[in-house]
Amino acid sequence: MEKQKDEKSGNEKLRQMSCEFNSLSRCDGSVMYSQGATIVIAAVIGPVETKTQNLCIDGSYLECNYRPKAGLPQVKERIREAAIRDVLELALLSESYPRSKMSVQVQELEDRGSMDACALNASCLAMLIGGLPMKYSFAAVHCIINEKGEIVLDPDLSEMQHQRASFTFAFDSVEGNLLLIQTKGSFKIAEFNDIECLCRAASAQIFEFYRSHLANYHGRASKETATTPMEET
């Protein structure tokens, strides 16, 4: 993987990802996840008892909270929260715990670009580590077109200041279907298609990251799983 990165130009690779599992003690699963300098903590609680008003007899109720670094959540944060919930609702196998509530909390620690993608990836990892049943895992990738018309994958804050258009895609891990598209700015359809392909390729790297870190955490040498992938292609 390292070799591939070197071959690509600097604009078309993801920033360094890292994560730390279960750093919080009181929730059912938590992860501190960073992409470059952007850092979030995501935590899940569930399945737990729900209020009667949210009770659903054939599935679980999913709650999502996104907290900014300082102050109270505003409209921007609410939109992000809704996006996370929409994607999680698609991925969660909610019928396995009827009449219960799953709660996902995302706390922003440092926003240095690509926050939407980072928050989505962190919440996916938190769900995986918390042992909530899912149909598939998902990965989100952020990409921009800058003023010169160059494509920048997973930009940081300084690169984002010169953007003409911004895209966030989320893909599932099984069939690679699109779960979320967020776009802003002006772009051509051809550019959109190029960027979708690029993000799809980058999502494979993120899935590989999930797999190797979770395998490590569960006390298994990641080498072993890398040589025997069980994924259906």
Binding site: A91, L128, P133, M134, K135, Y136, S137, D172, S173, V174, F207, Y210, R211, L214, A215, H218, R220, E224, T225, T228, M230, E231, E232
Partner: peptide, 12 residues
């Protein structure tokens, strides 16, 4: 001991 699986993986 066996392989590591992720959600959505098919176990043939």
């Amino acid at each position: 001991s066996s392989n590591f699986v992720m959600p959505g993986d098919r176990v043939s």
